Simulated assay, not measured.
Amino acid sequence: MGVLLLFHMWREAHVHQMIEEDVEVPHLPTTFDGAVILYLSDTHKRKLKWTDLEYLVNKVDWVLIGGDVAEKGISWSIVRHNMKLLSNIAPSFTVYGNHDKRAGTAQIARILRESGVQLLQDDVVYLRKGDDRLSLIGIDYRSKKGDMLLEQIDKKFCKIAIVHDPLQALRLEQNADLILSGHTHGGQLVLPFFGPVFLSKAYRSVSNGWYSLKRSPEDVYQEGKMLVSRGYGTNHLPLRLGCPAEMHIITLRVPAEKALTEKQP
């Protein structure tokens, strides 16, 4: 029985779910309606397979990566392989996670440059569709500059943020329309009725999935959203239980009330 359970946990850690969702994003320009993001986080030392992703070429507009593309002691060839593969799908952007900092940021930064993946360290870039654009903000792990960065952008401008740690991300909730996060691995080992075995109590309320973000009272549009991914790789043990690895294909949608308002004369 124990051997079968271990095999099941090993297998769960070496497959993944591809979750496809339409997500309404406040302040999204109408030209971005239907734009597609591939989001994944926490690859660690797990190697991506081109056969799992090649169908996304010409389907995905951007690839966003939630950090922890490496870990201490990793073979750098794995990081290089993963980053080159993702940048072959679409323009790709990432932030640092906590394990990236421990692995060696100088080497990671070099691999990212050579692979064509743009590293965002408290940076803002603009994604374009036609004559419109939205802001993509990448917040460095444990940085305190996130609020300042988002506050510098007009409140009516659509803001998507990549923030590795969801607790750090929650500090930005009144200024962001969509936050993409990770870090928790969803708990990685999750028991029925008990929940995540090793996940810190502080993260249990944001362990994985979609969460609503509070909006400023004067904002007439719907609340923002935060996604906490269970991640693609594993932390410490190459095992998962009740918490399969995942990637996300997110189709951006204009909120119904915004579309209706813009149609009115």
Rank of each mutant, 00 (worst) to 15 (best):
T30D: 06
T31C: 09
T31Y: 13
T31D: 15
F32G: 00
F32Y: 01
D33R: 06
D33L: 10
G34T: 10
A35R: 04
V36N: 12
I37K: 02
L38P: 00
Y39D: 01
L40S: 02
L40W: 02
S41D: 05
D42I: 06
D42T: 15
T43D: 12
T43Y: 04
H44C: 13
H44T: 07
H44N: 09
K45T: 15
K45I: 12
K45S: 15
R46P: 00
R46G: 00
R46C: 01
K47F: 07
K47Y: 08
K47P: 00
K47I: 05
K47E: 08
K47N: 04
K49A: 12
K49T: 04
K49E: 08
K49C: 12
K49G: 13
K49W: 10
W50V: 10
W50Y: 08
D52W: 13
Y55R: 15
Y55Q: 07
V57T: 12
N58C: 12
N58K: 14
N58D: 07
K59Q: 15
K59H: 10
K59G: 07
K59P: 03
K59C: 08
V60A: 09
V60G: 02
V60H: 03
D61F: 04
W62F: 10
W62K: 03
V63H: 03
V63Y: 01
L64Y: 06
L64K: 02
I65H: 01
G66K: 11
G67D: 04
G67M: 01
G67H: 03
D68A: 06
V69Y: 01
A70I: 15
A70W: 05
E71N: 15
E71W: 09
K72N: 11
K72V: 14
K72H: 13
G73K: 09
I74H: 13
S75K: 12
W76N: 12
S77D: 14
S77N: 14
S77Y: 09
I78G: 02
I78C: 03
I78Q: 00
I78T: 06
I78N: 01
V79K: 01
R80C: 07
H81S: 14
H81A: 03
H81L: 05
H81T: 03
H81Q: 05
N82L: 00
M83Q: 12
K84R: 12
K84H: 09
L85E: 05
S87D: 12
N88S: 15
N88R: 11
N88G: 11
I89E: 03
I89N: 03
A90K: 06
A90Q: 04
A90I: 03
P91M: 07
S92H: 05
S92A: 08
T94I: 10
T94S: 14
V95E: 05
